[in-house]
Write a protein that binds this DNA or RNA. Structure first.
Lengths: 335, 335
DNA sequence: CGCTCCGATGTAATCGAAATCATCGATAAC
DNA sequence: GTTATCGATGATTTCGATTACATCGGAGCG
């Protein structure tokens, strides 16, 4: 591949001029610019990224780590990230951590090696090396958290109000007349789960139904939905409504309901979380809490770009709107 | 962030020695290695990626472009890619092209700027600049195609035998006793669709049912499944079985079937394609053609690494096994 | 004893572009 | 007419690591 030297020689100018044609064309005479561009196309020149990056100390890349890309919720968020990043001239380095700490650390090392200008993590853990970095550099550290919010991490973030969203979901169930409600959570280590659980508990208490509330702990996967919802359904005093902390688990719950010869919503109402693309095409169409997935992606990029452009000096924790989308998987309990 | 110079000074050695500690530790005396490592941890040093990359002309990155990551089929393939890449010490740069040519070209430019050592594209188009590159460098160009196979592109690839897979799917329907079969394809510009369509046509002909075959052209999205399957269902002489070229379109078709008060499989049998994670949790559980998604990801990385390591000099087009997975969405036509 | 060889380490060139500073001709100002 | 100014361009340093080559002390050998 041709270098800037080749172009300079071919065009009969210095490398500085060639460089300027790309980064500050207004400083270069129209005619020379033409000469240079001709040489560029003739030689098929593209500026070498590593060289540019070394000199400028910028990569124009954003590293995004996600617990599981094959999860449609995350892939929608990433889509938003990718879109906003591209619009700002950044590209996305993707890291699938598979919920594994070692992988999170590998990607943390990449970030420290300056393979990306900023880091967006969609999980709830921040590897130690990065936590140190945050402690040292404060709110100007180009690290942003998406979907989750853990105040102790001291990074900016964009997310919904998980506690309120979950509370609204079960409140809706109580208002329909359900009294025995079950909830299938995600791993409680993540705020996304514990916050939602708090919301569920608070709502149950407000309605005086705390003692009839049943909790099962899942891991957001379809399979855990089948299993945990199944256990709830098999207990004496079967719940008439189940709230799953993800749509995938709700899909699993639907399966568990069918396996037991029960019907949704006649026998068991079901509420999911996220509103992934598939939720409205399930049978019955799933009532769920919509998260503004692409918007979270956009917002998280905006926060990061603000830090990178030095436009901000304080932490920002942005709460985006959620919405309970009522479809056909919920109904009043049958008499 | 500390540089190699800082470490060298702090450890009282030359930069060459520090560098060797990382890239060829066996050349360095145990004691000096220790001294250096202490300085490294003391200063929190990580080698600067751009500098290393400039010198070695390698990035240890693979650029992967995909038409749509929010599609669970692709996100599973990417998972396989990511896994295999990471195992080989490469990381993944993700490009969501959204089926748009301009984005494909943007990513092509990134590749030419040497932001990645290799390119895996999961679509069916190769931007001109890259086609030229392939023409110039031949089979040693580090570009590999996944999922699709278009001989004219002259790049290695990993994919299933789409024609045979599709033929088997409809043959299964004919064997069940269906005579009026409909198919919802993807955009015919991509080999993945045209190959499958050829398989469908051939199977119909073999069974003497070509004249009763109905084709509708979708775009792999759920919504197009609803629409196109709906049109097939509304035609006079309604098909008793529909074969969709993706599971997502099959989900849409299920919806279309329900909207018309029909039942699957009693009134209409349904076959999908891909076997995404959700296929077996639909109602009814979807009969579909399984693609070895993660395996395609692994294979495509293997092909690329072979090229990068100069272990190969000929094109390889690998055909991976598919499998018709029969579930509950198909049945003999009712009398 | 002197020479070669080798292991360990240092010196310095190098990768390709960006950016600072220097240069040069022309114009404007006094 | 001399000089400050400015626009366009060139010369050169710089970014931070890798690596070919140089160096040096000590072991091995005849």
């Amino acid at each position: 591949m041709a270098t800037i030297q080749d172009v300079a020689r071919d065009a009969g100018v210095s490398t500085a001029t060639v460089s300027r044609v790309f980064s500050a064309p207004e400083l270069v005479l129209e005619t020379t610019r033409h000469k240079v561009m001709e040489a560029v196309t003739r030689l098929g020149y593209e500026p070498n990224f590593a060289a540019k990056s070394l000199r400028t100390l910028r990569t124009e890349k954003i590293l995004v780590t996600v617990p599981d890309i094959s999860n449609p919720f995350f892939s929608q968020v990433i889509r938003g990230v990718e879109e906003a990043a591209l619009a700002a001239g950044y590209s996305v380095l993707l890291g699938d951590t598979r919920h594994e700490e070692t992988r999170e650390e590998q990607y943390a090392a990449m970030f420290r090696r300056k393979e990306a200008d900023g880091l967006i993590f969609l999980g709830h853990r921040l590897p130690d090396v990065l936590a140190e970095m945050v402690a040292a550099k404060g709110p100007k550290t180009p690290i942003v958290n998406g979907c989750e919010f853990r105040p102790g991490l001291a990074v900016s973030s964009a997310h919904i109000d998980n506690e309120r969203a979950a509370a609204e979901a079960v409140e809706y169930l109580y208002e329909l007349g359900h009294t025995r409600v079950g909830a299938v959570t995600g791993p409680l280590a993540s705020p996304i789960s514990s916050d939602r659980l708090n919301g569920v508990l608070a709502a149950a208490q407000r309605h005086g139904r705390a003692s009839a509330l049943r909790i099962a702990i899942g891991d957001f996967s379809i399979e855990s939905g089948v299993r945990q919802a199944g256990e709830l359904l098999d207990e004496p005093g079967r719940p008439t409504a189940i709230f799953c902390f993800s749509d995938e688990m709700a899909m699993g719950a639907l399966e568990a309901i069918r396996q037991r010869g029960l019907r949704c919503p006649e026998d068991v109402s079901l509420v999911g979380f996220d509103d992934i693309r598939f939720a409205q095409y399930l049978y019955p169409q799933l009532t769920t809490v919509r998260q503004p997935k692409e918007q979270i992606g956009h917002e998280v990029v905006r926060l990061l770009l603000d830090i990178l452009a030095d436009r901000t000096s304080t932490l920002q924790n942005v709460t985006l709107p959620h919405q309970l989308v009522v479809r056909s998987s919920t109904a009043p309990p049958s008499a």
